[in-house]
Design a protein around this nucleic acid. Structure first.
Length: 713
DNA sequence: AGCGCTCAGCTTTTT
DNA sequence: GCTGAGCGCT
């Protein structure tokens, strides 16, 4: 294999002997390349057969990319890359559980409950327990339960340092929640990890099977693994054949339970570990790298790593002070136009105000509220157009801390005719009509899915309100103590004995008869047929297509869903639906980005991890936003904000624009803000300041700590 | 049961 | 500035 395109350190990592290896890889140091070559190397040297390799990536997209790169590297072994088990921790666990979860009392056709489903379930439990939803929001319990699961604690083992009386309530809620999930045959995201660990711990034979299967394990983005994921690694890697790659300076998922100690104490856990540092950066200009280095030094106990590059100094970084978020967005838009078209930026390209009476913006905002239209759907009409001749926009990206910041940016981009795509935010799969359809599909597989049942039992309206739903729910919960098969026919019989209002009674019987009929769909039919059948039989199509424009729009979304479902038409519908629902549930935000579209990318810093762009606009660099005001209390969290800034800066190859606004609309009113501390430590010689107030330098020169008052926004 | 209205409280970040 | 809970009316 040709390793000549790798540097010494990369080669050392790629050709390391089997056994534990930790690669500490700075941004832009060829981490993915090293990982890919490593896999190719061990296959080609016949150290491990491809079918015995497990590669864990952070997103599905990363897995897909790695697979295709491997295909190129391993041209001689065509099928090798397909034999490797590759995917996110969550996706791989889901696959393992499909084979053996029946041992834990769940059905193998379990569905995955997303955060929204989880929230709804907890809310019902809180109502049952008559807990005040003001003082005890479902989101709080959701977060705490998630924390417990990440630490592998079942309700009976709960110990996450919460004080009484909350701890007692939490235990009760968690126990009921878990019981309810089991009865519905549902798993939440954290269950995928936790239950896999529990399965391995309780069934040594199963563990042994997978230890044999996964003789060699590689983990990307290791700094963002949580204790459950770590436990999985420890269990599986009997021979310590683990190859992990990460960067402690880019650990940004602490809020999700990831534990930076996993990377910091790797050698302690694997004493034989070989540690290799990749410190040469191939991505960014020297100026950008110097700035990033200064920023990460704000964290005193970050592990020392000295990045260097042979790249040129490059253009200076621009720091721009805007009046408000509108001016911030206009600055970005003007720069994009100027850079991509080579034209001087004239005011006419940026419409300061939408023309009087012309409200494409209003139309869009309304449409987005109604059914989450993409902005580009609304670019028709007399809007200014980006100059015809422009470079590709795929190399431009706008980064921000929170989704809320995208809005002003979107408005200006529309009014300039600049095409863009947003990563995350209101996702296709979060739209109401899509969730409704998915709920119907889930019910076809499993009528006891209460979250789905509640969602669509009265959608379209059937005269089954909340009261009736609750009666039905209780009847379902009484059915069987565990998640084994319960016949729908059995329940339909039981339903006739339940006390409901006569109209609701009739509707409910009809509803479950429909489910019975749908789930009796003969196996040769596939998922697309089932969806069509559902839309007709449930009356959902007729209900959506009420003749209104927005109704048609929604129906188009349902049709789009059918297109996606076509991927599964080769499978019998039960299998196809299960696979489809799983894929949809585990899709990450970044997976939905279209790399081939000629558009500017807008996304949060979290979504940007692992990506790179020639031109990066990093907006909202203000105290209270980055670092976020919610993070100012705890030093751990503050450190994570700094790392987040570091991740943002190091996405850029050539041009980097750092923008902040003096005032910003928050919750509807204008508030003054201060430039982020991140800006104050930038090396002056690498930066050009544009429109920056004198006070910025006064404060930066004073080098004093900001008072709490100044930090708040 | 189902609509529409009002008001409060809120926003990190995601598999 | 948006959402969703709560209320009152049909």
């Amino acid at each position: 294999m040709d390793l000549s395109s790798l540097n010494d350190k990369q080669q050392q990592a790629v050709t390391a002997p089997l056994g534990p290896v930790l690669v500490l890889a700075g941004p832009g140091s060829g981490k993915t390349k090293t990982l890919t070559y490593r896999i190719a190397y061990i296959i080609e040297k016949r150290l491990v057969p491809p079918a015995h390799i497990l590669a864990l990536t952070f997103t599905n997209k990363a897995a897909k990319e790695m697979r295709s790169r491997l295909q190129a590297l391993l041209a001689r072994y065509k099928s090798a890359s397909e034999q490797i088990t590759m995917g996110t921790f969550h996706a791989v666990c889901a696959r393992l559980l499909r084979a053996d979860i029946d041992k834990l009392g769940y059905g193998r056709d379990f569905v995955i409950f997303d955060t929204d489903d989880q929230q709804k379930l907890i809310k019902e439990i809180l109502e049952d327990l008559r807990l005040d939803s003001k003082r005890f929001p479902a989101s709080l319990f959701g977060a705490l339960i998630s924390r417990a699961k990440n630490l592998l604690q079942l309700p009976s083992e709960l110990n996450i340092g919460v004080e009484q009386p909350l701890a007692g309530q939490l235990q009760e809620v968690y126990a009921r929640y878990q019981d309810s999930l089991l009865k519905q045959n549902g798993l939440d995201f954290d269950d995928l990890l936790m239950l896999t660990v529990k399965l391995f711990e309780s069934f040594p034979k199963v563990l042994e099977k997978y230890r044999e299967k996964f003789k060699y394990i590689l983990v990307d983005e290791y700094q963002d693994t949580n204790p459950a994921q770590y436990a999985l690694l420890r269990l599986l890697a009997k021979h310590e054949n683990v190859f992990v790659v990460g960067d402690d300076a880019q650990s940004i998922y602490g809020f999700r339970g990831s534990d930076i100690r996993n990377i910091l104490s790797f050698e302690k856990d694997f004493p034989r570990a070989l540690e290799i540092k990749l410190e040469q950066n191939y991505r960014s200009s020297r100026n950008i790298l110097a700035a990033a280095q200064k920023v990460i030094e704000l964290n005193p106990d970050q592990r020392k790593k000295t990045l260097w590059t042979e790249n040129r100094g490059g253009e200076k970084i621009t720091v721009f002070e805007a009046e408000d978020e509108r001016a911030e967005a206009e600055f970005v838009a003007k720069k994009i136009i100027a850079l991509s078209s080579g034209l001087p930026v004239e005011p006419e390209y940026v419409q300061e105000q939408p023309a009087a009476g012309y409200s494409i913006l209003d139309r869009f905002l309304k449409a987005r509220r109604l059914y989450g239209a993409s902005l580009n759907d609304f670019r028709r009409g007399p809007l200014p157009q980006l100059p015809k001749k422009h470079d590709s926009l795929t190399e431009y990206c706008v980064l921000y801390r929170t989704h809320a910041q995208s809005r002003a940016m979107e408005e200006v981009l529309i009014s300039c005719g600049i095409p863009y795509q947003i990563v995350g935010g209101l996702k296709f799969y979060e739209r109401r009509e899509i969730k409704d359809m998915l709920a119907y599909l889930r019910l076809c597989l499993n009528f006891r899915d209460l979250v789905s049942l509640k969602r669509v039992i009265n959608e379209p309206p059937r005269g089954i309100g909340d009261k009736s739903y609750q009666v039905i729910r209780d009847a379902i919960l009484e059915l069987a103590p565990r998640g084994q098969e319960v016949q729908l026919s059995e329940f339909r019989h039981k339903l006739t004995e339940v006390k409901l209002q006569s109209k609701a009674q009739k509707s409910a019987e009809e509803f479950f008869a429909m489910l019975d009929e749908l789930s009796a769909t003969p196996e040769p039919l596939a998922l697309p047929d089932l969806i069509k059948k559902v839309t007709k039989r449930s009356g959902y199509e007729r209900y959506l297509r009420d003749g209104s424009e927005s109704g048609e729009g929604r129906w188009e979304n349902v049709e789009e869903l059918m297109t996606v479902a076509n991927k599964f038409k080769h499978l019998p519908w039960r299998e196809g639906t299960t696979a489809f629902l799983e894929e949809v549930a585990l899709l990450s935000e970044i997976d939905q980005k279209d790399d081939n579209k000629d558009s500017v990318t807008l996304m949060t810093l979290h979504s940007a991890k692992g990506l790179e762009f020639d031109n990066v606009f990093f907006i909202g660099l203000e105290e209270g936003i980055l670092p976020h005001s919610r993070s100012l209390i705890e030093t751990d969290q503050l450190a994570e904000e700094i790392r987040l800034a570091y991740v943002g800066l190091t996405r850029a190859r050539h041009r980097l624009f750092l923008v902040y606004a003096r005032s910003r609309r928050i919750y509807g009113d204008n508030r003054l803000s201060n430039p982020s501390r991140v800006l104050k430590v930038l090396p002056r010689e690498a930066v050009e300041f544009v429109g920056v107030s004198k006070s910025f330098f006064d404060e930066a020169d004073a080098d004093g700590e900001l008072t709490v008052e100044e930090m708040e926004f």
